[in-house]
Simulated scan of single mutants.
Amino acid sequence: MNEQTIEINLTTNKKEKPNPEQLSFGKVFSDHMFTLNYSEGKGWHDPKIIPYQPISLDPAAMVFHYGQTVFEGLKAYLSEEGKALLFRPTKNVERLNQSNQRLCIPHIDEELVLAGLKKLVEIDKEWIPTAPGTSLYIRPFIIPTEAYLGVAPSQHYQFIIILSPVGSYYKEGINPVKIHVENQYVRAVSGGTGKAKTGGNYAASLKAQEVASTKGFSQVLWLDGVEKKYIEEVGSMNIFFKVNGEVITPALNESILEGVTRNSVIQLLKYWEVPVVEKKIAIEELFEWYSNGLVEEVFGTGTAAVISPVGELSWHGENIVINNGETGPIAKKLYDTLTGIQKGAEPDYFEWTVTVD
C-alpha cells in the first residue's frame, strides 16, 4: 500500500441538508470531497479531504477535449445501529483500474483509494439518509488535467470522490419501468470501450435515451453494435430475464459493463438454487419466448437502482407487457435481500458489506 498520509481540511461552513423525503438522484452534494493528483515521474500524490468546491482547470486541459475519463459508482448506507456500511467497495476500485488500463490512465493504488473513501464517508456520515429507498451515492472519477491539445494520454490527472444523498434513480422506484429496445443507434462494439466505465459510452447513449423518453420510456435496451441482434444491457443497468423457471442474462463481452450488482445477483440466485445462465440472447428469441408464454419476469440490476423490474418492452413498434406490468417475486426478493444486506438488516453470508467506523 502507498503509505501517504491523507491531509484533512474540514469545512467551516456546513451546508443545509435536504429533506430526505424529497431526494432525487445526484443533485445535492455533501460537505467534503477526496482528491488525489498524478504527475508523470511522481505518480499519485497529495491525498486530501477538502471542502466540496469547484475545480479550476486550464481551458486546454485534456478532459475538455478527448474524453480520457473514467468513473465509478457505489453507495453507503446507515445500519439500524448507526454504522456506515459500504457494499463491495473493493470490486468498484478493481473495476476502476480495469477502466484505467483501457483508457491509458495510470494504475491507482487501490488501498489508498479505499482508505480515502472510508475516511470521506466517515467525515460526512451525517449525510447518509435513512428514509426508505435512499442512500449516499459515491462517485469516484479520474480526469486528465494536462493543458495540451495533442491526441495522446495525459501526463497529469486528478482523482476525486464526491458524495450525494439520493432517492430512487427511477421515478417509478421499485415499480416496473418501460424500456425501449434501440434499433438505430449503437453504444459500443467489441474492441471499443464498452467494458470500461468511461464518459464517452454514456455520451454515445444520450440521443437514443432522448428519443425513448419522448415516447414515454424510462430507459433504452441496447443490442449489439454489429448485427443489432443480441441483447447487451440497459443504459444504466445489466438485464435479466426469467424464462420458464430459469434466469438468463447476457454473457459478458467487450461491450458489456461487468456490473457489481449483476455479479451479486448471480451469486444470490445460485445460493437460492435458482437456475441462472449467462449466454447470448437474441432479441427475436426473447419475443418468441414471450409469444409462447414463457417470459415470467424481466429486471435490471445496477448500483443506482439496485433492482429495477421491467414491466414493458417495445421493439419495432411491438409492445410486450411482462407479468401484467407488476413486480415479480424474484425481482422483489432480490431487491429486499440486497438492500437488506446493504443496510445490515439481512445476514451477509458473502461478507459483502464493509463497516466504515
Rank of each mutant, 00 (worst) to 15 (best):
M1D: 12
I8V: 15
N13W: 04
K17T: 10
N19V: 00
S30W: 07
H32Q: 05
N37S: 13
K48A: 15
K48C: 14
Y52L: 15
P59I: 10
T69Y: 09
L74P: 02
L78D: 06
L86R: 03
F87H: 05
R88K: 11
T90K: 13
T90Q: 13
K91N: 13
K91C: 11
K91P: 02
Q101S: 14
L103T: 07
P106V: 05
E122N: 09
E126D: 15
P129W: 12
P129T: 09
A131S: 15
S135R: 05
P144Y: 12
V151I: 15
Q155E: 14
H156K: 15
Q158L: 14
F159Q: 03
I161P: 05
G167I: 04
S168L: 12
Y169Q: 11
Y170M: 08
E182N: 08
E182D: 06
N183W: 11
V186N: 13
R187F: 11
A188S: 14
G191V: 06
K195C: 14
K195M: 15
K197A: 04
T198V: 14
L206I: 15
L206N: 06
Q209P: 02
E210G: 13
E210W: 13
S213C: 06
S213Q: 10
K215H: 14
V220W: 01
L221R: 03
L221A: 04
D224F: 05
G225W: 12
K228P: 10
I239R: 02
K242A: 12
K242L: 12
V243E: 04
G245A: 07
I248E: 08
T249V: 05
A251N: 11
L252S: 07
L252Q: 13
V260C: 04
R262H: 09
L268V: 05
W272V: 07
E278G: 00
K279Y: 05
E284H: 08
F287Q: 02
N292P: 02
E297S: 00
V298I: 10
G302Y: 04
A304T: 00
P309V: 03
L313E: 00
S314V: 09
I320M: 01
I322W: 05
N323H: 08
E326G: 02
G328Y: 01
K333N: 13
T337G: 07
T339R: 07
G340C: 11
K343Y: 08
D348Q: 04
T353I: 14
T353Y: 09
D357P: 07
